[in-house]
Computed example of a mutant assay.
Amino acid sequence: MSLIEDRIGPKYRIGEHSFTIEHMRRQDGNGMPQPHAHPFYELYYLLEGERVYSMNGQILSARKGDFILINPHDVHTTSKGSIPGFERILIGFSPAFATGMELGICGLLPFNCSRLLRLPEAEQPEMERILWQMLQECKERRPHYEIAVRSLLAQLLIRIHRVEENIRQSCPGPLHPMQDKISEIVTYVNNNYTEPLTLEGAANRFYISPSYLSRMFSRFTGFRFSEYLRVVRVREAQRRLLSTQERVQMIAEKVGFEHTAHFNKTFKQVTGTTPLRYRKEHR
């Protein structure tokens, strides 16, 4: 299919924050280079083109027929690949929406980790049929369409699970000699974000010059080092806000912020809302 025109379809919704699906075709290949996370699952299916995802310290190059599977609160970026333009279908659904489904679907979630799933060519037509049918159900809104969409989502997740069982897709190999080192540094940050980490400290620890580490970290993750540390801390704060009764001040200290005011400001910059409002809206 030729990408000859932009087309951004409506974003169909079920409930306030339960389920969304959207079809998009773009010529320019623009992405979301700013690191972001959300409290819902995301399924990104690429119909045409190429996209580059950065998450969990990995650089994932998605092509036609690939799924990107994203767990709630996992920080990621997306950018254009070497092929201009892309076409995709994007699904978002809350943990509560998944929990309400039958067929034992809860056992398939959460994903082991956010990752790329490369579908065998023989599997792609059926996956795409399910996706287009979901869009059609949401567009027509016939009686009981919500149940139909839940059923289709269940079918989609089951097929994804079966494909993974069959192929046990390994992660793509390094695209650059520094990619493994950057992945190691990302893992270090993920495990030590409560400490007063700095770019210079990480550079000394891993025997890399600060300027080179800064360039390579941004290149392979889409984040500046300080920016990635900030969103990792906020991601953990989001988890604590929803899963504990801890006060905001205590959460701020536990995720590595010295001052509550700085935490509140950073949290709003990353999520667009305050910690207390986030807790109230997503519980």
Rank of each mutant, 00 (worst) to 15 (best):
R277F: 14
L213G: 10
Y228V: 02
R247G: 14
P10D: 14
T271P: 07
E246K: 14
F67M: 02
N112W: 01
K64G: 01
S114Q: 02
R215D: 00
S114E: 04
H176V: 06
F220W: 11
R7C: 06
G173V: 03
E123P: 00
H73N: 14
P95G: 09
Y53V: 00
I130Y: 06
N30K: 15
G201M: 08
S79A: 03
G222D: 03
L213W: 08
R230W: 01
M1W: 12
L116M: 12
E123A: 11
F263K: 06
R205Q: 15
Y41W: 12
R205L: 15
N30V: 13
R235W: 03
G256D: 09
H144F: 15
Q27P: 00
D66H: 12
P143S: 11
E165H: 11
T273R: 09
P174V: 01
P35C: 09
E164H: 12
H76E: 04
E281C: 06
E22W: 11
L117K: 09
K254P: 07
P174Y: 01
Y188G: 05
R240K: 11
C106D: 03
H38W: 11
M216A: 04
R115A: 04
V270A: 04
I185L: 12
Y45I: 03
H259N: 14
H23P: 14
N192S: 03
P275Y: 11
E281M: 09
N191K: 13
T273M: 11
